[in-house]
Amino acid sequence: MPQSTIVRLEGITKVYGMGDTTVHALAGIDLTIEQGEYCAIMGASGSGKSTMMNVIGCLDRPTDGQYYLDGQDVAQVGDRDLAHIRNQKLGFVFQQFHLLPQLSALENVMLPMVYASVPTAERRERATEALMRVGLGNRLQNRPNQLSGGQQQRVAIARAIVNRPVLLLADEPTGALDSTTTREILTIFGELNKSGMTVVMVTHESEVARCTNRVIWFKDGQVMQPYLAPEDLGTVTAA
């Protein structure tokens, strides 16, 4: 598989507020993430890791700097195009799952394809396939409130991968789950990564980060350690 750069950030800054009370959430970030990587973004709260996630996820625009996603300059594109990029190139998994309660598992997974104008028959087929991939082939018609937390998160993962994104972003994906379900979810992420999916997750749990191949350590809006091996995590957390 040819290697290509999925995320390339050059001098990214994000400044909140005006005048005297400005906060530099991101203070000049240079970072690349290659195709097929499995990384964790870590750091203390307020270190800028969530802002980073939002910028990488095209939910927020940087104040300054260049951001190339899959080779495309997306730092300053308009709202509509940004929505299209999120739809086509990115998959999101959130701590709170964010499934729509009135829709079945299948319909929740079909939702991104609705916004991508995929024909209905194909939607159903691909959504079923995605749900089978996360082990929920027998729960297609269940509503979110009929599923356990781990199952709901698996539906959310299916929804994130159904539009075949180049990058899967997970924001504290195991934050609301117990340790057994956490392992199940991490196994799914691992399998997805093995099949070629680039995965980036924000977490504050070292055990979760240890399942990845690379840790990006944030502090005070800057990348302190762009290539930290997960087994060396003890050195930064101790410091």
């Binding site: 709202d79 509509r80 929505a83 739809n87 959130f94 991104p112 539009n163």
Partner: peptide, 16 residues
């Protein structure tokens, strides 16, 4: 609000 946020995250535009 959350539903709207989610829809936007997975690709709904403001117009949608």
């Amino acid at each position: 609000t959350q539903e709207i946020g989610l829809r936007k995250a997975i690709g709904a535009s403001g117009q949608d």
